[in-house]
Write a protein that binds this DNA or RNA. Sequence first.
DNA 1: GCGACAG
DNA 2: ATCTTGTCGC
Length: 244
Amino acid sequence: MASERATHVRMTSTWPATAAEAIAVQEKLRGQVDPSDVGEAPRYVAGLDVAYAGNWAQGDRPAADRLAADRLAAAVVVLDWQTLEEVDRAVVLGETTFPYVPGLFAFREVPALLAALEQLTITPELLVCDGQGLAHPRRFGLACHLGVLTGIPAIGAAKTTFVGTHVELGRERGATAELIDSGEVVGAAVRTQDGVKPVYVSVGHRVSLPTAVERVLHLAPRYRLPETTRAADHLCREGLRDGQ
DNA sequence: GCGACAG
DNA sequence: ATCTTGTCGC
């Protein structure tokens, strides 16, 4: 019970309160990102996602320096890399402590996701995040943030792009195209199923881009999104629905 | 200056 | 992210 309380205390004391402070945190931590492969193929892979109770359309929040207080449910689901069967799960209910600001998205979800990760019995060797990694204005998206803070290899698998453009890619599963921003390769557009819209993959921490793409394709054998993402999405919505 | 803008 | 019905396709 001590651990559950501790996470809530930490997210209110050490967390940035303004956009300027948050950007400073990103600038400070970005140098810690390791974009190379560390370790072998994972045995356990985690999918992470957050669901919100509020209804804040983009633009509804004028200032970044104002606290939002949406109810949320953060979920982490651990799957066996080989069978894609679930081996562990955790859900944490709470409130956001930061408004949604493009580029500062991680500050909305990281505290709750870290709390959920602490509830796990099995430690995952790869975090598949619902958002960008290096494909970010300051090269420090959610996947980089979670990777650096936990030390666990992480990748970003987003449904849409944030920064960067790419040429058209083949229509078949497995087709890819470099995501380029300001002349830099920041990620890849990946077709995970024939004819579906691509998934945007980028490095989070301790995993190279080619490996990140391989991981996503392995985790998405049947649907557009990785099974990890799908499982976490289902779990956080369920947690929000019948949570306290 | 004017839009665009992960979830 | 969230609000939302039926509907086309495998």
